[in-house]
Design a protein around this nucleic acid. Structure first.
Length: 505
RNA sequence: GGUCCGUUCGUAUAUCGGUUAGUACUCAAGAUUUUCAUUCUUGCAAGGGGGGUUCGAUUCCCCCACGGACUACCA
């Protein structure tokens, strides 16, 4: 499988928000495509009309836009192999169903869902397959005239794949190696439903991947059990020589306990499982998103990339471009990965520290606005530069930085007890007067002058500075003190000192 | 129940038969700092169990246990 052009796809169903596990699958496909100079296709698998959710498709597209994952062709991206929405490919599937029927690889079955349910209740482990199909109502057991008559009178039917029993089916998986399954354990899967004239996933998937010239199928491990079926389908169509290579990714698991990560886990544990905030049109529920929670897309990408894959060394911080260079399916792990939200936070912290101050300020501006603060851009840029290494999220910037924009109205009691001494009011007043007389209010000059002044007066450095901080911030926290006064300006700094003396004295 | 996949510190993982089993997150302690945070240093902590193969097994094979996925006219 060598000289073929790499073409991969991400093919979600528009049944709701895009799960973070799906994002990772898409990311791996993207990395693989880019690295090999191939194409990434965006296909919508909407063959189940009952589960269609309006807005889901747009949501998915917007999510990838935010994350910076670009597609080369597909729904909303154009391309030569369309249409890329399966509901628009009915005629194509019909044609291929016919091919299977004509070649005796499939048959028509009239058993109703109710009949099948009854059968399953009646017989434990009932399976529609070679061992049972001859006792069911289908084109294998019914005379041709009756089959035609049933269809003519409008009876609903399905087309089932006729799987030959007792055959070892080999699936080569790039991550797992050879997986062998006996065809007898597979059931005669429904490939097509007359009710909505649509195929099921399996048929549509194989036909589309073939027609779209997909070279590699990189998908979640939940598909591994049906991979043998897919191999058989390629074989039935005679497409085995161009069958894509498979790679089944390990699943994303719950942070605690067992099982696949689900939307409910996010709600329960308080972290997003969706890239963007999602408003469910059916239930009205709102689920939080990484974007709205203050995550940087590059952090989400980096974090996700490392959940189930590693570059083979200890490197952890990698840009999307670096990931493209380093990615390798052979370095994907086989076991499911528990989702560690704390690590995700750490990644975001790292990216915030790396982020350009101006860009960060841009993200912080709207938050300032909602808190009623109008501040000049250059000030916000300076503040962000001073404070960004203290937060994990952009939104945390408000709580840690607000004293730059709003004077303290109350003073933290603990800090006051510890830092506000008997002689503090006098010292602070004296300090205010001293600062007032300063011509040069730069950080460097203030520091030089104030230090000299403290030494000259013989004051205790810590006492003066801590009380000073309390007057400016209202708490015992914050960056270098003269960075604060320089940003506040002389006038505001003096006002804060004097007001604090009034209130605290 | 059946089929398939998996199993290294709490979590994510490195190790292509020979290592004091490494790294990161978390947590703890210390250093630095006028405060808080950052940062730095140190520490805690792992090969599910049992058989083989081998001079030697975390690594290869088998069994068991456990975990996961799948088992729809859903994807």
């Amino acid at each position: 499988m060598s000289d073929r052009k790499v073409r991969v796809r991400f093919a979600p169903s528009p049944t709701g928000a895009l799960h973070i596990g799906g994002v990772r699958t898409a990311l791996y496909n993207y990395l693989f495509a880019r690295q090999h100079g191939g194409d990434l296709i965006f296909r919508i698998e909407d063959t189940d009309s009952n589960r269609f959710v309006p807005g889901a498709e747009e949501y998915i597209i917007e999510s990838f836009k935010w994350l910076g994952i670009k597609f080369d062709e597909g729904v909303s991206f154009g391309g030569e192999h369309g249409p890329y929405r399966q509901s628009e490919r009915r005629d194509i599937y019909k044609k291929y169903v016919q091919v299977l029927l004509e070649n005796d690889k499939a048959y028509i079955a009239f058993d109703t869902p109710e009949e099948l349910d009854a059968k399953r209740k009646e017989i434990a482990n009932f399976q529609y397959d070679a061992s049972t199909r001859m006792s069911m109502r289908n084109s294998l057991t019914l005379p041709k005239e009756e089959v035609d008559a049933l269809i003519a009178e409008g009876k609903q039917y399905v087309v089932r794949f006729k799987i030959e029993p007792n055959e070892e089916v080999h699936v080569h998986d790039i991550i797992r190696g050879e997986v062998i399954v006996n065809s007898s354990v597979l059931d005669d899967k429904v490939l097509y439903k007359s009710a909505d004239e649509l195929p099921t996933y399996h048929l549509a998937n194989i036909v589309d991947d073939h027609l779209m010239e997909v070279s590699h199928v990189i998908r979640g491990e939940e598909w591994l059990p049906s991979a043998p079926l897919h191999v058989l389908l390629y074989r039935a169509f005679g497409w085995e020589d161009t069958m894509p290579e498979f790679a089944h990714l390990p699943l994303l698991l719950k942070p605690d306990g067992n099982g696949k990560l689900s939307k409910r886990d996010g709600d329960r544990l308080g972290f997003p499982v969706f890239p963007l905030e999602w408003h469910d049109p059916k239930t009205g529920d709102v689920s939080s998103g990484y974007r709205e929670s203050g995550y940087l897309p590059e952090a989400v990408i980096n974090f996700l990339a490392l959940l189930g894959w590693n570059p083979g060394n200890n490197q952890e911080i990698m840009s999307l471009d670096e990931l493209v260079q380093l990615f390798d399916l052979k370095h994907c792990s086989k076991a499911g990965a528990k989702f560690d939200y704390e690590k995700g936070k750490w990644f975001n912290h790292e990216y915030i520290m790396k982020k350009d101050n101006a860009e960060l300020a841009e993200l912080f501006m709207p938050i300032l606005k909602t808190n009623g603060v109008e501040a000049p851009m250059d000030k916000v840029v300076t503040v962000v530069g001073l404070m960004k290494d203290r937060v994990s999220f952009v939104k945390d910037l408000w709580e840690t930085c607000k004293f730059f924009f709003v004077a303290p109205t109350e003073y933290d009691e603990k800090t006051r007890k510890k830092r506000w001494k008997e002689d503090s009011p006098a010292h602070m007043l004296e300090l205010a007067n001293f600062l007032e007389a300063l011509e040069d209010f730069s950080v460097e000059n203030q520091e030089k002058e104030v230090m000299a002044w403290i030494t000259e007066k013989g004051y205790h450095l810590g006492n003066v500075m801590n009380a000073f901080r309390l007057t400016l911030v209202g708490e015992g926290k914050g960056p270098h003190i003269f960075d604060i006064t320089a940003v506040l300006g002389k006038e505001e700094s003096l006002r804060r000192i004097r007001r604090a003396v009034e209130v605290l004295a």
